[in-house]
Simulated assay, not measured.
Amino acid sequence: MYSISLQQNQYKTYILTDDSTNSQLEVVPERGGIITKWRVNGEEIFYLDEERFTNPELSVRGGNPILFPICGNLPENTYTVAAKQYNLKQHGFARDLPWIPLGSLQEQGVSLQVTLNSTETTKAVYPFDFQVTFTYRLEGNSLTVSQHYLNKSAKSMPFSFGFHPYFNVKDKTKLKFEIPAQEYFDHKTQEIKPFSGNFDYNQEEIDVAFKKISGKSATVTDSQRQLQLTLDYDDVFSTLVFWTLKGKDFYCLEPWSAPRNSINTAEKLTILEPGASYATSIKLTAKFI
């Protein structure tokens, strides 16, 4: 049985439930359209820093933050369009703005639709009219995020997009990665390094990008939790980023449509013509083994 309910906490929280697998999603549209929690068999799959979440001055560290209209950071937070310079902070503004809930469905799972429209505030840093609509769908032990990007401008609109999911983990040394790549770019050292299936967690921070990926699925197995997570993504997601901090009970495996600074370099950049739209999706599946 599927259901959806609304709970008034600090923010209005939509709770999507699939009773057949004791699974739930919690979505907070007004706090960046974010999924804050995802439970399967009653187990928390996502990590959430509750203290940061309750402070609207801080970016959310946890759940599944949205990256748009850029992924990563820009040199000096600047980029140029039509010979004019603009400023965009890391990962763009979508994760910080209120999204509008549009409605829900309870067929083939339970879903909630949320949308973000351009405003004068967004156009001051990103000079385009747009509409971004997501459909979050929970079905059994899977979470699907369907995305629709619409250019409402009279000019071509360049952008990149992605997600920054935070996954719960207690012992990172118990993780095993199956990523369709043989090397990654280390953002800290600016070096390309071979990948053999895991990382050195003695580092204070790990921030790497897999740019040469040969498949559309990645899997992480946590032997301590006996949990296998699979991330499936469309071809447009050209980059997978792994990020974690020493001493923190999370790791991030992030699907990006383009690497850092693509709005300046045009590498893997998505460009929509006036009136055009683009649709894609990602899917996360949690399996206890």
Rank of each mutant, 00 (worst) to 15 (best):
F250K: 11
Q228V: 02
T54D: 11
T135A: 07
T285M: 05
N141L: 03
F53T: 10
R260C: 02
S257T: 15
S142L: 04
L227N: 09
N264P: 11
L112F: 04
S3Y: 04
I66G: 04
E204H: 08
I263Q: 12
V110L: 05
N64W: 01
S5I: 02
F163D: 06
N73T: 12
F195E: 08
R137G: 09
Y2F: 10
Q190L: 00
W243T: 07
N55P: 03
G247N: 14
K287E: 03
G247Y: 05
L231H: 12
M1H: 14
P180N: 12
L105Q: 15
S217T: 13
M157K: 13
K152G: 01
F128K: 12
T285I: 04
Q108A: 12
S118H: 14
M157V: 09
G140R: 08
A279I: 05
L284R: 09
F185C: 05
T54P: 02
V110C: 06
L58E: 15
A279S: 15
E204V: 02
G62P: 07
L116R: 12
Q90K: 15
E51P: 04
K174G: 05
L6D: 00
Y14H: 07
K89V: 02
R39M: 02
A276N: 14
A94C: 06
G109N: 12
S257E: 04
P194H: 06
K174S: 09
K211N: 15
F210W: 11
V236G: 02
N64Y: 03
K176W: 00
T119H: 06
S142Q: 15
L240G: 14
A276Y: 02
Y47L: 03
S277I: 03
S20L: 10
S142T: 13
V236T: 10
H187S: 10
L48K: 09
I35L: 07
D171H: 13
S238A: 14
P259M: 07
Y126P: 08
P56V: 10
K152V: 02
Y79V: 02
P158Y: 04
N117A: 10
T135M: 08
I35D: 01
Q85D: 05
V28Q: 04
D222C: 03
L269I: 12
S5M: 02
G103S: 05
A124N: 11
G92P: 10
S59V: 08
S160D: 08
Q8K: 15
I206M: 11
F210V: 12
E204A: 12
Q224D: 06
E139W: 13
T230C: 04
A286H: 07
I34E: 04
L102V: 01
S257A: 09
G103M: 01
F210I: 09
Y233Q: 08
L97G: 03
T17Y: 02
G247P: 10
I179T: 14
Y11F: 08
W256G: 05
L97D: 05
N41A: 07
V60C: 06
A218P: 12
A218H: 08
K287F: 00
P75H: 09
K170V: 04
K216R: 15
D232Y: 01
